[in-house]
Design a protein around this nucleic acid. Structure first.
Lengths: 254, 254
DNA sequence: AAGTGGTCTAGACCACACC
DNA sequence: GTGTGGTCTAGACCACTTC
C-alpha cells in the first residue's frame, strides 16, 4: 500500500526531488522573489507524492529561508529581503590540520590568578576571586598564527590546571566538561602591543594589524569561559562560502 | 482516529514538546555528550505519540546539530566534537538603523572602468573589459564607519550607473536584480593606506587597524559582484550570540 | 464555503548495524 | 533475526485567509 519507489531511478528521496525542483524554479528566476509557489495539493498532483511529502519539502525550504509560508494564504518564493550571511568560526588546530599543514602549540601560561574588577564582573565573582588563566601560542608549520588567551571559571573546570594542553586542545577539554549553552562572538581589528607583536613574530616592516575574535561562553546560565584569539592580519583570515539551498537556518521571513 | 490534542493544554505541537523534553535532558547534563537518546519507539511509548512525530522531533534536533543520528545504531546527544560557530554578517545600514542611530551614505564614485588583469580573471572577462565600479562611504551619526568598494559585472547589472544609491542601498538594488546563488566571505585585518585613513577620519594617534570583509557573489554560475567593506577597527565589530537549540544547521556529526 | 498550511496517526517498506 | 533510523502513504482534524 506504500510504493516507496515508483521508478527504479537514483536513490534520491522524493521530498528531496520536490525541493530541488522548487529551488530550480526560484534560482532560474521562473518564480521571482515574492512569487507564488505551487500549493501542497498542486505538488501532490504534479509529482505524484503524498501531502506529507510535499509538506516536508516546503517546510524544509521554509526553514532554510528560501520559501515563506503563510497559513491560509500559500507559499511564496524568498522575499526580496536581505538575507543574513554567516561566517564560520572553527578551531584553529582543525583548520590547520584540515588544510594539510602541521599544527604545534606552546603553553605560555597555565595558572590561577585573582580576577580583576572587570573580569570578576564578567564572571559573576567578587573582585580578587580565584580564576584560571591560560595563554597558548599556535603555530602552523612553525609560523605563529594565533594567540589564545583564556579565562576559565573554576566552577566550570575545577581541574583546569592539571590538564596538558599540548595533548588535548583547550576547546576539546572544555567541551568534554559539558557543552556551552550560550556562545557570544565578537570580531574586530586592532593594532597589537609590542608584546603581542613579539609573540607573533611580526617584523617591523610587516603588516601590523591583528584580527581578534573574542568568545564568551555560558553553561547552564553561568559564565564559563572568556577567550581572546589574536591573529596576525597578514597571515590569517576567517572565511566561508555558501550556495543557495545549503544555507543555515534564518528567520523565516513573513 | 486522530486525537489531535489529548490534553486541552497550551497549544504547543506534540513534536515541539518532545523536542523540549530532549533538549532539557541534554542541557541539564542528564544525557552527557555522546550519550544515548531514547529510540523513536521509546519516545512513542513515553509521550504517547506516533512514530512520525517522534521522528520529526529527532530529525529537527539533528538538523540543529544537537543530536547525531546513525541508521541502525540509534540517536545520540551532541558529540564532543567542536561545534561550528557562526558569525552574522548584515547590511551596515540595517545595523545602524536597528541600533537606533542615523545612517547616511556618500557616493564617492560610480563609474565604468577597465578591468585590471586580476579583476578580469575574477570576473571571467578579458583584461581591459568594461566593468562597473562604485565607492560609498557610510556614516553612523556623521561618523564614518564603513567604506564600500564594489566591482559589479555589467552582465549582471546593466543599468548600474543609472541608480541613485542614496535612495536605495547597493545591496538592495542588486538583490532586486536576482538573488546570488553563491556567496563567499573573507574577513581579515589590515593596516589602512593614508587615503583610507583620511576617508575614515582616523586620527594620527587613533587605533589604526581596519577590519575588512571581502564578499564575492555569483548568480547562475557567473561572477556578479566583488566588494570590499572596510571598517575602522576601533569603531566597528562583527558580533553574534547564540543559544543552544537556535543554532544554524551544521553538518550532523557522526 | 473553499482553499491553504499545521499537525497527527497507523501502518508500511527499506537499508543498515549488531548479535 | 532484531532493533534502529529513513522514507512514504492515505486519511484525518484543525486554524486561518479569502471569497
Amino acid at each position: 500500500m506504500a510504493p516507496p519507489d515508483r521508478e527504479p531511478a537514483a536513490r534520491v528521496p522524493l521530498y528531496a526531488r520536490v525541493k530541488e525542483a522548487i529551488v530550480e524554479r526560484i534560482a532560474s528566476g521562473q518564480i521571482g522573489p515574492g512569487g507564488r509557489l505551487p500549493s501542497e495539493h498542486e505538488l501532490m498532483a504534479e509529482f505524484g507524492v503524498s501531502r506529507m511529502t510535499a509538506h516536508r519539502a516546503l517546510r524544509e525550504l521554509s526553514a532554510a529561508g528560501l520559501v515563506a509560508r503563510v497559513q491560509g494564504r500559500g507559499s511564496f518564493a524568498a522575499p526580496p529581503r536581505p538575507r543574513l550571511e554567516w561566517l564560520e568560526i572553527r578551531d584553529i588546530s582543525d583548520e590547520i590540520v584540515a588544510s594539510g599543514h602541521r599544527h604545534r602549540v606552546r603553553v605560555l601560561a597555565q595558572e590561577a590568578t585573582r580576577a580583576r574588577a572587570d573580569q570578576a564582573l564578567a564572571f559573576g565573582l567578587r573582585p580578587g576571586a580565584r580564576i584560571f588563566h591560560a595563554t597558548l601560542l599556535h603555530y602552523e608549520d612553525d609560523v605563529p598564527v594565533q594567540i589564545e588567551d583564556r579565562l576559565v571559571s573554576p566552577r566550570f573546570a575545577p581541574d583546569f590546571l592539571e590538564q596538558d594542553f599540548t595533548k588535548e586542545t583547550v576547546a576539546a577539554y572544555l567541551l568534554r566538561l559539558g557543552p556551552a549553552t550560550e556562545t557570544e562572538h565578537v570580531v574586530y581589528a586592532t593594532t597589537p602591543s609590542p608584546e603581542i607583536r613579539a609573540l607573533l613574530e611580526i617584523g617591523r616592516d610587516e603588516e601590523q594589524a591583528c584580527l581578534v575574535v573574542l568568545r564568551r561562553t555560558w553553561s547552564g546560565g553561568l559564565p564559563a569561559t572568556q577567550t581572546e584569539f589574536i591573529h596576525p592580519g597578514a597571515r590569517y583570515a576567517l572565511g566561508t562560502r555558501s550556495s543557495m539551498g545549503d544555507r543555515p537556518d534564518g528567520p523565516a521571513a513573513p
